[in-house]
Amino acid sequence: MKQLRMPSFLHDVFGEKQSMGAIAAILLFGGMLTAALYGAFPEMTNDLPVWRSALAFVLIFDIGSGCIANFTASTSNFYAARKTNRLVFIAIHVHVVLVALLLHADIWYSLGVWAYTTIAALTVNALIGKQSQLVVAGFLLSVGLGGIPMLPGITPYMLIVCELFMLKVLFGFAVDHYGRAIRNFR
């Protein structure tokens, strides 16, 4: 499929080149996830100002879209070649906490998920160039995905947001899926 050159302000999202199919999949999943969550759980925005609901939905869209974008060769390779950008990206990703604050839901759980995800992602990131990276990432992701549903009383929509956030940052983003960073170290 033909690769489109991305404008520089979109490199952090799509990398330098991205196919139309990948862009469509990224945007479609983010949009469908956001709409499906609202359709299934309209009560999550009860009694909230429109601006809070809208901002929460933008962040949920970003989490969902990032789950797909971070697995594309273009995005993965863009960050594999830029170690500092990857660390900054991991550090600034507090989306799950912001969603919880905006929706007044599971704030303490989201802080725990964010802390675990950040520490695990930094651990996985430190293993770039090592064969163990993928196994460690898979292990840490499995622990997290297995543990989140056991949190007593977690709301279903925050369960989904927390798990996708973890997938996005810990496994989708922190892993060098295409070996680009290994080639850059040599």
Score class of each variant (00 low, 15 high):
L4N: 14
P7H: 14
F9R: 04
L10N: 06
G15I: 12
S19V: 14
M20C: 04
M20Q: 10
A22E: 15
A24Y: 12
A25G: 08
G30P: 11
A35E: 09
A35H: 05
A36C: 11
Y38H: 09
F41M: 06
P42G: 09
T45V: 15
N46K: 02
D47S: 04
L48C: 05
P49R: 03
P49H: 08
R52G: 06
A54S: 07
I60C: 00
F61N: 03
G64I: 02
S65G: 14
S65D: 02
C67Y: 09
N70L: 06
S74F: 14
N77H: 12
F78Q: 11
R82Y: 03
K83R: 07
A91D: 03
V94Q: 04
V96K: 06
V96M: 03
V97E: 06
L102V: 03
A105V: 10
D106C: 05
W108N: 01
W108T: 00
Y109N: 04
Y109G: 09
S110Y: 03
S110L: 02
G112C: 11
V113G: 03
V113W: 09
A115P: 14
Y116M: 04
Y116K: 01
L122T: 10
T123P: 08
L127V: 10
I128K: 12
I128M: 13
G129W: 00
K130N: 04
Q133R: 14
A137M: 13
F139T: 11
F139V: 15
S142Y: 08
S142L: 14
V143Q: 06
V143H: 05
V143R: 04
L145V: 04
L151D: 02
Y157S: 08
F165N: 13
F165K: 08
L167I: 15
L167V: 15
G172R: 12
F173H: 15
Y178W: 15
G179D: 05
R180K: 14
N184W: 07
